[in-house]
């Protein structure tokens, strides 16, 4: 196995386990500081915003197809999710539309 990939997934596993074990190791007896309570609420929405924007960072509006497949499929995902609130329907519907649009446009 490629030592780079092996090292990377072992590092990912160790860091993930550390994140999951932290509260059980440190906060069994005392309350976490208030700033942890604050950050636990506000970090997830910020990370999701960054990840969505990051997905669109390479978009080119200057040349065909002008980012239309990405934007249309993204709107489709949002619309499906607001309508049905079914994660699988939203993801598969949007991805299917994207795969169709990049072939026909």
């Amino acid at each position: 196995m490629n030592p780079y990939v092996l090292g990377a997934i072992l590092a990912m596993g160790a860091v993930t386990l550390l994140c999951r074990a932290t509260p059980f190791l440190f906060f069994m007896r005392r309350r976490p500081p208030a700033v942890v309570d604050f950050l636990q609420v506000y970090i997830p929405p910020m990370i999701m915003t960054i990840l969505v924007l990051g997905s669109y960072k390479a978009l080119s509006f200057a040349s065909a197809p002008y980012g239309i497949p990405e934007l249309a499929a993204g709107l489709c995902v949002a619309a499906l999710h607001l309508w049905k609130r079914n994660t699988l329907v939203s993801i598969f519907g949007g991805t299917a539309l994207y795969m169709l649009l990049i072939r026909v446009l």
């Binding site: 609420v41 506000y42 997830p44 929405p45 999701m48 915003t49 990840l51 969505v52 997905s55 669109y56 497949p69 990405e70 499929a73 993204g74 995902v77 949002a78 999710h81 607001l82 994660t87 939203s90 993801i91 598969f92 949007g94 991805t95 994207y98 795969m99 990049i102 072939r103």
Partner: peptide, 23 residues
């Protein structure tokens, strides 16, 4: 399978909407 990678963007959009509902 060209374009299947959009599933990841779609997943992030879904999770962002869920965050917007609660925060």
């Amino acid at each position: 399978s060209k374009g299947i990678e959009f599933a990841l963007t779609a997943l992030f959009i879904v999770l962002l909407i869920e965050q917007m509902r609660s925060v």
